[in-house]
Amino acid sequence: MNDPLKESMRASLEAARKKEYASLIEETKEPVPLAKNVLLAFVVGGAICLLGQVFYVLLTMAGLADKTCVTLSLLILIFLGSVLTGLGYYDRLGKIAGAGSIVPISGFANSVVAPALEWRTEGIVAGLAAKLFTLAGPVIVFGVTGSALLGLIKYIWLALTGGAL
């Protein structure tokens, strides 16, 4: 059990992992209390959704179909998220709001624009366009794979129980 070689290997692995971790969180050195983080996420995230609801209500007043209003409101938020990222304001908001600015769709737009901006100097094709999917890639991969697997599960379930699609 207490093999000294194994122990030292484990210890050095642990040290390496801690070092990597420390370098990853260098931006957030100061530990912020959970309650404050959660409250900020709630308020900022809620405010972005409220803004979306305001756009939605204004669009329904213009007499558009319900689904169109939802999509258009999301598009406005995507536009705002992209432009504010491009101007450098959204990342500042992200430092305060955490998940409150990441989880709304404007945060998804931010995750697309931010790495693209950063790699623009490497060229439009190999830099900007390639890095556009640094963060959006995983979301699309897991989103598509997850929905396909869940669809397949439903298909098999209905085939076994004799239900209709």
Binding site: S82, L87, V112, V113, A136
Partner: peptide
């Protein structure tokens, strides 16, 4: 999800080209 995804890609692309962070 096409409307949202296409919008993110296109708007994101042009934002990254034309805007400069302050």
């Amino acid at each position: 999800g096409a409307a949202g995804l296409d919008a993110v890609i296109i708007i994101g692309f042009f934002s990254a080209i034309f805007l400069k962070p302050k």
